[in-house]
Amino acid sequence: MSRKVLITGGTGLIGTRLAEMLIDSGYEVALLSREPAKSSHFRSFRWDPSGGGIDPLAVPYADYIVNLAGSSVSDGKWTDERKKEIMTSRLGGLALLRRELAKPGHHVRAVISASAIGVYGDAGDALVTEETPPGVPTDDFLADVAHQWELAAEPIATELGIRLVIPRIGVVLSTEGGALPQMARPVKLGAGAALGSGKQYMSWIHLDDICRLFIAMLEDEHWRGTYNAVAPNPVTNADFTKVLAEVLHRPLLLPKVPAFGLKLALGEMSDIVLASQRVSAAKVLARGFRFEFPELSGALESFYEKE
């Protein structure tokens, strides 16, 4: 049985590691990319989510599609233009995939389409599950983006009858990118501090665990619908900073970084670090998935032990 996976957004943090782990697990991998790299050791198909163009051979190649495409929410301040790009990069890609999947002549068995725990908005210290309604309509941009992203994916299941899994991804921990290097930098310099009140919850997941989870979702057709892709032990920002300092063997000297200072520096983007999301992993655990890194200290040690 052929096991070909087409990844959109395959050059990002998750896509890069996922492609490696899929190859190691015996899959074939191809990437959908706006600028297919000549040097990549993966087959590449060209697409243009904003212009609506896609290589007609791309979708017929695949047994499975993993959709990670979307402009990063943490690159640069959220100007109106930037916000538009963050939204349209997600919706445009899904519209294209939906259009191609509606055509005959492909054999796609399942689509995993990424979302984010931002969909819950700022939920304080309430434990949120997949049943918790999205935090919209509000003036919460991240909640709106994730909600629209999920709505754009749904017709793949409801209209086309293809198995669809929507992982709501938490803060992905890796030293290759994402939030962790930014958070570790001041701590390494001995200037680490909790952000804002420090009481806000962070729901995180180790990069290898999110990739293992995606592979489980591909392989077992019982996975359908939305799942929180987070480790089972969310922590407050203050605890995260404390554990990070311990793992890095650095003191925590400073008081908290005030929320108003972050708002000044980052604008609306400060929502990424100031919003509180305490997200349940119970549904994923009930499916039988086992985390390699269920605890924050073990996850952080896996990156920094050698230092």
Rank of each mutant, 00 (worst) to 15 (best):
residue 246 E to S: 14
residue 273 V to L: 15
residue 240 F to R: 04
residue 234 P to W: 00
residue 205 I to D: 00
residue 226 T to R: 07
residue 238 A to W: 08
residue 216 A to M: 04
residue 214 F to P: 00
residue 195 L to H: 07
residue 229 A to T: 00
residue 259 A to D: 10
residue 214 F to E: 08
residue 231 A to E: 08
residue 264 L to K: 13
residue 258 P to D: 08
residue 193 A to H: 13
residue 225 G to N: 13
residue 240 F to L: 10
residue 245 A to M: 07
residue 216 A to S: 13
residue 209 D to M: 04
residue 245 A to V: 07
residue 207 L to Q: 10
residue 258 P to C: 03
residue 246 E to P: 07
residue 266 L to C: 08
residue 266 L to D: 07
residue 209 D to Q: 06
residue 229 A to D: 02
residue 231 A to V: 03
residue 187 V to M: 11
residue 270 S to H: 05
residue 258 P to N: 06
residue 258 P to H: 05
residue 192 G to D: 12
residue 238 A to Q: 13
residue 215 I to M: 14
residue 272 I to D: 08
residue 190 G to V: 10
residue 209 D to R: 02
residue 258 P to A: 01
residue 217 M to W: 04
residue 205 I to W: 00
residue 197 S to I: 01
residue 261 G to Q: 05
residue 247 V to W: 10
residue 247 V to G: 12
residue 262 L to M: 14
residue 208 D to N: 13
residue 261 G to I: 08
residue 198 G to K: 02
residue 210 I to C: 02
residue 189 L to R: 14
residue 265 A to I: 04
residue 215 I to D: 01
residue 191 A to C: 14
residue 238 A to M: 07
residue 209 D to P: 09
residue 235 V to Q: 06
residue 260 F to P: 00
residue 253 L to C: 12
residue 267 G to P: 06
residue 193 A to K: 14
residue 228 N to R: 02
residue 245 A to R: 06
residue 226 T to E: 03
